[in-house]
């Protein structure tokens, strides 16, 4: 019997979302099949993460970046150069009211300096305090008007401010964070759309867990979201997915324990990269259109993986 390729056709299509401007701009999304199964050239973008607060980062990053670790703009430049990443994420962790509680002005200055230091698109992550993030990301959106950055991310408690500022007033992209909750992912997209943010300006931050730490729940969430968007043509779930695995992957004991803590586990840097690559690659095959990691080696490995799958 001759071989007949069984191909599942979907009626839906993931939106194309462009981030950044000019020659540096990249597009994510646009597929009408599950990841890597179509012919439309699905390609995951790979981003490198930095932070304005790196005190807790593993020692390997001190060896890698030296004094640049204390200077976000210099760190951004070095991170892009060392990783060859398609875009950069800066986390404004200093904004956290329970931490350094840096002023909005200081955070905005950091974001502006970082943007000026790199020639790839920028994603700006808040400190995960909804109230403070609303203020910080609103002002970041204003200061970087015309740069088409991603505000990462709006949540239920601040989507109105971030959506109105980013998606409407200053023409940025808005990411909607749903913490591995499929119903909330849909709900936030509906709320942002009702607010007046265009679908093509919304990105989903569906969250992640480090590999081995409940990741199967992340996998089923991504699957369900993609099948609803593609198979059921659910327009409220056709936004591209952006996943930052760096905080989770570098936060579990396999990555945190030093060689002194756990000599039998071997080199800490290799373990951290291993956790990050394992988590990131699982997200890539699960449907993330843009994946963000911390270590330049992780970025290079994931880029090579994507290139290898596409062939």
């Amino acid at each position: 019997m001759p071989y007949k390729k069984a191909e599942q056709k979907f009626s839906g299509k993931i939106n194309v979302c462009e981030i950044g401007v000019g020659d540096a701009a990249i597009s994510i999304g646009g597929e009408n099949s599950l990841p890597f199964l179509g012919t439309e050239g699905f390609k995951t973008a790979v981003g490198i993460a930095i932070s304005d607060t790196t005190d807790e980062w593993a020692d390997c990053f001190k060896a890698l970046y030296g004094d640049d670790l204390k200077n976000p703009a210099a760190l951004a430049k070095a991170a892009v150069e060392k990783s060859g990443a398609d875009f950069l994420l800066v986390k404004l962790e200093s904004a956290d009211p329970n931490g350094a509680d840096a002023s909005v002005e200081s955070c905005v200055a950091t974001a502006v300096a970082v943007e000026a230091a790199i020639d790839v698109p920028l994603v700006v992550e808040g400190c995960k305090n909804a109230e403070k993030d609303a203020k910080v990301l609103e002002e970041v959106a204003k200061a970087l008007e015309g740069k088409n950055v991603v505000l990462f991310s709006a949540v239920e408690d601040n989507y109105k401010t971030i959506g109105a500022a980013g998606g409407m007033a200053y023409g940025q992209k808005v990411s909607a964070e749903s913490a591995v909750d499929i119903n909330l992912a849909k709900q936030l997209n509906i709320l942002l759309t009702q607010l007046g943010v265009k679908s093509k300006d919304i990105i989903m931050d569906v969250g992640t867990a480090a590999a081995g730490y409940g990741f199967e729940y992340v996998a089923s969430t991504m699957d369900r979201i993609r099948l609803a968007g593609l198979g059921q043509n659910d327009e409220s779930l056709q936004m591209p997915i952006m996943t930052n695995v760096s905080n989770e992957a570098w936060g579990v004991k396999e990555a945190v324990s030093t060689i002194e803590d756990a000599p039998e586990w071997g080199d800490q840097e290799a373990r951290g990269i291993g956790m990050e690559v394992a988590t990131a690659s699982a997200c890539v095959v699960g449907g993330s259109n843009a994946i963000i990691v911390r270590h330049p080696e992780s970025a290079k490995t994931v880029k090579a993986l994507v290139a290898g799958i596409i062939g």
Partner: peptide
């Protein structure tokens, strides 16, 4: 389970 639930499902 033909469509995914969301609190605003009737408004979309």
């Amino acid at each position: 389970n033909n469509i995914l639930y969301a609190d605003s499902v009737l408004e979309f």
